[in-house]
Every structure is written in C-alpha cells, then in structure tokens.
C-alpha cells in the first residue's frame, strides 16, 4: 500500500504529528509544551510543513488525513479537528477520525490480551474503552472470531484465565509491531466510575478469552482504580498486565488506525465530530436538551 497519510494528535498536553506511507511511519514529531502553556494552534501547521519538507512531500502528495477526535481537551480537539477538516476540504482529501482511547491502546494490541485504555476524567470517573487485536492471518488469537464486537459473546477458543496467557516463562508473547489492522472494539468509549470500567474490562476480556492489559494515559491509575481492576480480573481468574511505559497517544497510532478506516471506505471530512470528555458548559440555545 503506498497511500500517504498525515496524522496528528492535539487532544492532550503534547503535540504529535506523523507521516505514514506504505504501511509504516516515515516521519514522527513529538513536541512537549511546558506545563500550562500549550501551543497546539501555533505549532501544528509548521510541524506538518516541516515533515512534508523533510520527506520531500507536498500537500498535494497526500492521500488522506487522520486526527484524534477525543476524548480530550476542548481546545485541543477543536484545533485538531478544524485543521483536519480545513486541509481535507480544501484539498479534496478523505479524513478519518480516531478515538483517543483507541490510539492509546494501539501499541499494546497483541493476540493474548484485551486492552483496557483509560483516561482520568476526575471525580472518580474515567473514560474507558476495551479493544482487542483483530485475529491475525494465522488465527492465533483465542476466541477472536467469537469476540468480534460483542462483549460476552460465546468463546470459540480455550478456557479463559490460564490459557488466555501463555504457559512457561510467564512472559507475554508475540508483540509484533501492531500494524494497521483495525482492532476489535469490545467496549466503546464511555465515561463511568473507575470501578465500573474495571468490571467492564474484565467482562470483555473473559468474553474474548484473553487476559487484561491496562494502558492508562497520563501516568498511573488512582490507587482505588488499580485495586478495582485487580479485583475484577481476579474474580474471573484472568491475568492482568500493565503497560510499562506511561501510555501516550502517538500520531503513529492515529495514522495506522486512520489508514485502516480509510481503506474500509470511511473518510468524509464532514463526519468528523469531537467526542468531548464532558458536555460543554456553554451550548447553543437551539441545542437539544440533554
């Protein structure tokens, strides 16, 4: 596949921009702003312009645009989505929206785990979603087919728990580069109490016959949330793993996921809609009442 995609994430404290070609990232840019002084609006376009120059591309050589649609900061999402829409509409390019949680889960997708991605939503609430890698061509993922899109669907594989993680060394195997296959969404992004997210993840993982892997954005989970997750996994005899790096959203993940979406035929820029972390405080008077 020689499609060229520009992807970016402006949903959080840092800015990430990627250029993607032929199924892999060819240019990746990370900018960390000083705390409390984000500058996504001023930095995004110069960043992608730098990338185009360094790769010898131009805007007219792009085949598509990918952007995170949330949850995330209001201002960040507006900057990202407005920029993606503006570029796509002006150039007649397709644009695909990617969930922040999906991008957070992407580096950790493997055949053996359901990945719980969560972001702190304050006051004991989290934004959470559960994903699993689509079964590879070799078909090694236990329960993968039976798990497609349906938490709690009947398993086609072995018993969960002991067989969900490999025997022997106790290490988690087979984490190849995640690639650009669209993951299965075992539970869609939603805001909920952290204990509820823990239950949801354990239920989805058990249904898919996989262990649970937790990828928390912005560092460590609150102690209560971590304990709830451990308890929910233990009740179902599931193994629980933790992403060792502080999980972060990379434009590399956004590009990979956008490529899958664009291949599947999505990509109307007008369908890009932000998924805000909470309802806006100020809304048009004509907005339907919640």
């Amino acid at each position: 596949m020689s499609e060229r995609i520009l992807a970016f994430d402006t949903s959080g404290a840092s800015l990430s921009v990627a250029l993607w070609e032929g199924g892999r990232t060819v240019w990746l840019f990370t900018r960390e702003f000083p705390p409390g002084r984000p500058g996504h609006a001023a930095a995004l376009v110069p960043a992608w312009q730098r990338g185009l120059v360094e790769c010898g591309w131009s805007v007219s050589s792009l085949d598509g645009v990918g952007v995170t649609v949330g949850p995330g900061s209001y201002t960040g999402l507006r900057i990202g989505i407005a920029s993606a829409k503006g570029l796509a509409l002006a150039r007649g390019l397709p644009a695909a929206g990617v969930g922040t949680l999906e991008a957070l889960a992407w580096p950790w997708l493997g055949p053996e785990c359901a990945v719980l991605a969560w972001l702190d939503a304050r006051r004991g609430q989290v934004f959470a979603a559960v994903y699993a890698a689509a079964a590879p061509a070799g078909g090694a993922a236990p329960g993968g087919a039976g798990a497609a899109g349906a938490p709690g669907a009947p398993r086609t594989g072995e018993a969960p728990g002991e067989d969900a993680a490999p025997a022997g060394t106790g290490a988690l195997h087979a984490h190849a580069a995640p690639g650009d296959a669209a993951p299965l969404e075992l539970a869609p992004p939603a805001r909920m109490p952290s204990a509820e997210a823990a239950e949801l993840a354990a239920q989805a993982a058990a249904g898919a016959g996989r262990a649970v892997l937790c990828a928390a954005g912005d560092g460590e989970l609150a102690p209560g949330a971590a304990a709830a997750l451990a308890a929910a996994a233990a009740r179902r005899g599931l193994r629980l793993w933790r992403a060792p790096l502080a999980a972060r959203v990379s434009a590399e993940a956004v590009a990979a996921l956008a490529a899958a979406r664009l291949r599947a035929g999505g990509g109307d820029p007008l369908t890009l809609v932000p998924l805000y972390a909470a309802p806006p405080h100020v809304a048009p008077r004509t907005a339907p009442g919640a």
């Binding site: 990746l28 960390e32 000083p34 360094e54």
Partner: peptide
Amino acid sequence: RPLDVMITEMQ
C-alpha cells in the same frame, strides 16, 4: 523553567 522540546528524525 520547563522546556519546550521538539523531537523528530535526524536529518
């Protein structure tokens, strides 16, 4: 002062 740092591929 915290730094504003950009990281990308070496050219």
